[in-house]
Amino acid sequence: MKVLVPVKRVIDYNVKARVKADQSGIDLANVKMSMNPFCEIAVEEAVRQKEKGTITEVVAVSIGPAQAQETLRTALAMGADRAILIQTDLDLEPLAVAKVLAAVIAEEAPNLVIMGKQAIDGDNNATGQMLAALLDWPQGTFASELEISSTSAKVIREVDGGLQTLEVALPAVITADLRLNEPRYASLPNIMKAKKKPLDIKEAASLGVDLAPRLKVLKVAEPAKRTAGIKVETAGDLVTNLKTAGVF
């Protein structure tokens, strides 16, 4: 069984994003970039499934600039077998990413896709669902537990109010939530080994996929700043202040 894991290179989750002065976007110059945390969880899940024997091959794929090779090397160091970079300097929207992934899937024919539920830059939470739609595959989103058998997968999903369990026929798209696992750190020997694993590079434009944006970004602005209030000395002072503020 082969699994495809799409991974995105994004601003590191510890870095506070800064809006450019001309409001054209986020300043990413000299900012630390890393693998999207939810994609790390997806890679970890695929590798664990391989270690359990349910999966035989893990293929990581990223769509992005040349530097996304670093992200793919991280996936390889975590245990992916090979990697594909679909290279583009365009900032693709989830629909275009899903179309590119569908084209990769047409070639690779995986039995399963495990990906992140959300990229922490655009916060769209859309690509996995869109990919499932384009392929007409079932989807198991926001997974906190995944059990794979030969023809189906059982997914426990985090939903409002609790947990839902679904069984989806394979092939299917699974998107990872925070509680699916805790990703490993790649060991130094594995980072070294990852350098020798295959990483194919293809130009996005060569896939014949419609990459055109559907949304025009008119402006990226900073939200209204919240100013720090006051420190109170005691719980009694707190209640007095809340009463004055009209809460009670």
Binding site: A17, V19, I120, L215, V217, L218, V220, A221, P223
Partner: peptide, 16 residues
């Protein structure tokens, strides 16, 4: 819409 954990607000125009 908010992006980057609400650190920025993006104004988008849809052509769809």
């Amino acid at each position: 819409r908010p992006i980057y954990a609400g650190n920025a607000l993006e104004t988008v125009e849809s052509a769809d």
